[in-house]
Simulated scan of single mutants.
Amino acid sequence: MTTSTQTRVAVLVGSLRADSLNRRIAEHLVTAAPEGVVVDIVDGLDQIPFYNEELDGESVPASAVALRESVAAADRLLVVTPEYNGTMPAVLNNAIDWLSRPYGAGAIVGKPFAAVGATPTPYGGKWSHEHARHSATIAGALVVEGIVASEPALEGDLLQDDAAIERLVGALNDLVSHTPAAA
């Protein structure tokens, strides 16, 4: 729902820890967003039950409704996530599952999408980001190709690394400036 002056980006953070590096990255992106861009971190992912079609009927859990409404109201969806055991955290996978429903009309369908983040490995969350992009594609999102910011957070504070911050903010800018192809 882009207006002529504002683009909204919903952000899902894959780590539930209050002071996680990926939450701090997301919070940095809120303040580093270019003019005309509003970045909203979608909280409460830990309150959403695991997806179960039996729950997704007439009385969808309020936490899942809030997630869907937040993402539906945004123009873009950005995932900022670490990597757990070589893949995306379960809380993130669950959020994508809820956003993919109802089939073909979920809040994620047609939404430009990117995944970035950091993890304390030499790979920086590469597999997690690949898996999130793959799952989002299956769910109907429009994954923006070429956006890669998988940051290894091996020493020091990544948020003090100007080059890493430039890549992460650049990824946000690339997502925002992406124009989906006409259908």
Rank of each mutant, 00 (worst) to 15 (best):
V71D: 02
I96R: 03
R101F: 02
N173G: 15
E69R: 11
E54Y: 06
V79Y: 04
V144I: 11
Y123A: 13
P112I: 00
G44E: 02
G44F: 00
D40M: 06
D97N: 05
S135H: 06
V38P: 14
R23V: 06
V79S: 04
D75V: 11
P180R: 08
V39Y: 08
P102L: 04
T137Q: 10
P120E: 05
P180M: 07
A107D: 02
A107C: 01
N94Y: 00
K126G: 12
P61E: 00
P102T: 01
P82G: 07
L142D: 10
G104L: 03
S59P: 06
R23G: 02
Y123V: 14
F50P: 00
A107T: 02
D40G: 06
V65A: 03
G170A: 12
T121P: 14
S150L: 09
T121D: 15
L12E: 06
A105R: 10
N85Q: 14
V79E: 04
G124H: 10
G14D: 04
Q6W: 09
D174A: 15
K126R: 13
G124A: 14
G14H: 04
L154A: 11
A95M: 03
L172R: 06
V144W: 12
A26D: 08
I25S: 11
M1F: 15
V91N: 04
A18D: 05
V79C: 08
H131N: 12
P89K: 02
V60L: 03
N85W: 08
Y103E: 06
D161M: 15
S177G: 14
A139L: 04
H28G: 14
Q160H: 13
R17K: 07
G140W: 05
L55H: 03
A90V: 00
T87A: 05
L158R: 07
L55G: 03
E166S: 15
G170H: 11
